[in-house]
Amino acid sequence: MSLTELWVAFYNTAGPGGVVIVIVLVTACLIYWRVTNWIINGGKHDRPHDTHA
């Protein structure tokens, strides 16, 4: 199957469209989850300094 045929099949077939939506939203959720963790970890990273406070 050529790339063009694959694209046409994706575009015209019922089903793959829903998968795209799910992939986009789930990927976004994962990225935001990781980013939130990264921000909060900033506090953990600094925790050794707490002893001076």
Partner: peptide, 13 residues
Amino acid sequence: NLLFYGRYQSALL
């Protein structure tokens, strides 16, 4: 049905 039978041809998707 948008998720189960979604077709990306449609601007609704």
